[in-house]
């Protein structure tokens, strides 16, 4: 088992070195929670995309990592926040092929496909917060024998 302190973290996103720490911490947390290899990879990749957005478009910010529980399920919630210029047109930013910087335009829209839940809060001039959650997928468990 794991302790919450091994998973919970608040990581700064200020440089591309920080991106490496973000990826490593998310990988470790996902592994502790019992995510399978493919789901770990998806979540780490999503974290990498979103952290880079925070760095490049938001001018830096931070990532909060929290374990979440719902019913019997465990999951990991990642909250990326920055105080940058914000996103003027969310709809467009989420569509594939949209890019405001370098990259292949897969940033937000691509990351959304890699996680189970995805929320963005942003307004022009007031920064951006992206909150994503993924759940450990377990095949349906046989009920405990009574």
């Amino acid at each position: 088992m794991y302790t919450a302190s091994e998973i919970e973290a608040c990581l700064p996103i200020r440089s591309d070195m920080d991106l490496v720490w973000v990826r490593q911490h998310v990988r470790q947390a996902a592994a502790l929670l019992g995510f399978g290899l493919v789901d770990q990879t998806k979540l780490v990749t999503a974290a990498s995309e979103l952290a880079r957005n925070t760095l490049v478009h938001g001018g830096g910010g931070q990532l909060d990592v929290t374990p979440v529980t719902a019913g019997f399920g465990h999951g990991l919630r990642l909250t990326f926040s920055d105080t940058g210029p914000g996103i003027a047109d969310l709809e467009r930013a989420l569509s594939d092929g949209f890019t405001s910087g370098d990259g292949l335009g897969m940033g937000l829209g691509g990351a959304r496909r890699l996680v189970h839940e995805f929320e963005v809060e942003s307004a022009e001039g007031s920064g951006t917060t992206v909150r994503v959650t993924s759940w450990v997928s377990r095949p349906p468990r046989a009920r405990e024998e009574r």
Binding site: L37, V38, Q40, T41, K42, T45, E49, D96, L104, M106, G109, G110, A111, R113, L114
Partner: peptide, 13 residues
């Protein structure tokens, strides 16, 4: 790796 390939495809790349 398989996990990387699956993720890239899901990402749309």
């Amino acid at each position: 790796r398989p996990a990387v390939a699956i993720t890239l495809v899901e990402l749309g790349l």
